[in-house]
Design a protein around this nucleic acid. Sequence first.
DNA 1: TGCTATCCTGAAACCGGTTCCAGCAAGCTC
DNA 2: GAGCTTGCTGGAACCGGTTTCAGGATAGCA
Lengths: 340, 340
Amino acid sequence: MPATIRDVAQRAGVGLATVSRVLNNSPLVSPSTRERVQAAIAELNFTPNPTARRLSLGKTLTIAVITPFFTRPAFVERLRGVESVLAESQYDLVLYNVETPEKRDIYFREVPRRQRADGVLIISLAPRDEDLPRLADSPVPIVLVDANHPSLTMLNRVITDDEEGGRQATAHLIGLGHRRIAYLSDAFETPFNFTASFDRYKGYRRALEAAGIPFRPEWHRWGPHSRAEARRLAQELLTLPERPTAVFAASDTQAMGVLEAARDLGLRVPEDVSVVGYDDIEIAEYLGLTTMRQSLFESGRRGMELLLAMMERRLSDPVCEVMNAQLVIRATTAPPPDIP
Amino acid sequence: MPATIRDVAQRAGVGLATVSRVLNNSPLVSPSTRERVQAAIAELNFTPNPTARRLSLGKTLTIAVITPFFTRPAFVERLRGVESVLAESQYDLVLYNVETPEKRDIYFREVPRRQRADGVLIISLAPRDEDLPRLADSPVPIVLVDANHPSLTMLNRVITDDEEGGRQATAHLIGLGHRRIAYLSDAFETPFNFTASFDRYKGYRRALEAAGIPFRPEWHRWGPHSRAEARRLAQELLTLPERPTAVFAASDTQAMGVLEAARDLGLRVPEDVSVVGYDDIEIAEYLGLTTMRQSLFESGRRGMELLLAMMERRLSDPVCEVMNAQLVIRATTAPPPDIP
DNA sequence: TGCTATCCTGAAACCGGTTCCAGCAAGCTC
DNA sequence: GAGCTTGCTGGAACCGGTTTCAGGATAGCA
């Protein structure tokens, strides 16, 4: 049995309250008493029981992080940013991994309670409308990272401007001379409410429009988020009678599927077809993939900083910080081939 | 302020103990009373305070996971396995991310205390000898995943047989006819005490020996674990006067560096040089990389199962479960070129 | 009708801290 | 030397649950 504060008090011949004061560096302890208590603490190898502390303080000293942790490399990178801030703090990081919509709903309902956590950080998961009132009135501060939804204005969040990113990626291709530009993405309506695909799509449409290029519905393909699925979709795209000369993929993982499809079909990248991805995950550099770099780590870091600020009441109105994505030009984009 | 068990008791016109019994499904409550209490719980939207529960039960209902979380893709996969088991349990997962040796030492010292966690799972970090006695006598059950060290016999762990894996990878190359086989790895002595590189090296040596191929020290290169560093090392290897015809890399990440180096030097893979990696991370399939598949997810899952078994006293003697790696032959290995 | 066994209930102690508040001793003022 | 601060200390209440234990109500039985 570990020593308790009572054991220490007895050993040092003082009252409980005094030991507690020493532990909390209260100035209301005389140097000689402090020394005696510290000696007793050392002798008994005493460490305060965090659970008792939490109960007494009425705080959990815990931050809950809800994230679809593993389904995409980008989430892990955001989580790293979150952790980097938390490591310096007194808070523990409790991880709630969401792999199904059911899990998400359960966690959204149960985690943001004062008894569970002092703050909740939600990564890349947009709440459903019916969850909103509860989250907005939550007794616990909440920050969303990478959940861009029009109805979220009452919640604190850090987002990247996916529409602008989609626009830039597309504009890059247009600037190179492409006019047959396909877009390959996730479905817009997913059980997880991911909004990135749709926002990037809006940017894609906007860039086309600005350049006077008509949108061709058959050049937009979507499916579950995986390399294999993207490969299949890209094969369809690249065997169309009127073949796109460039593909903008909504993620690097999907861009890899496009590269595979091109390889399957004997098409050279970038000579025959250009490819742009999104995220700039680690592997993108190796592949020479032109892509949109998101500040993934940074967004997690910033989200956590916001949350800590809220918890310390240093923040009143809902804040929405926008981080910008940045085009990274590598070797998978070039002017389109001459087409008769 | 959230409702407490006392509020519920008052509302239902019963004593505290009865409410507690209802919460814990004790059979010692009459149906009518139970119903009244449940009604009160619903009306007050009451949830029991986990902190108070923990203090009262003398359990933390928490599992601590210490991991060098983000430095390699393989860790994340193991963590997924851990989480998959924990999600079904009543335990929270508290994450301690180790990015420096100092952090590791702090966590090894502070986390395995009864007041902090009911169980500790350590991924891919071998304790230093001086930590061993404390860990072995820890009041809290501990399981190590992927920490293979001769002095760890008194600790529960799940390991993969890295020596055998290294042997198999090398034997595969020998079987193809290679006799000039290089090994590219991390340094054997690292601040984190990773042992995989050295164990795989031992397997490499053993396979060479079994085939009567002398070991050539200049064909073993090592450096920090990164693609860029591996690329540099591989460039050295592949420009030696007597050039190896195959490179066995201690991880897929490093194998990618080797592929880059080959590309830099205009060497074809596998025609001019064969490459074998280790881990079978997701990207390996995309690259067509021949590699050793580790049961990463499975090892995490198994480790967590072991830990839960220990916590329930279903386990007495230290257990060491060995998982086997498995050769996955893809497109980066072939017989060596004819050499004069 | 009286006695016991069974079932259910609630008061109180407990987990291990923090903090309020009363009180004591020493030092200061007049 | 009486009266007041000031500085330090410890008893006790409190956080919100669980669990022990004593006892009351009811049913069963003689």
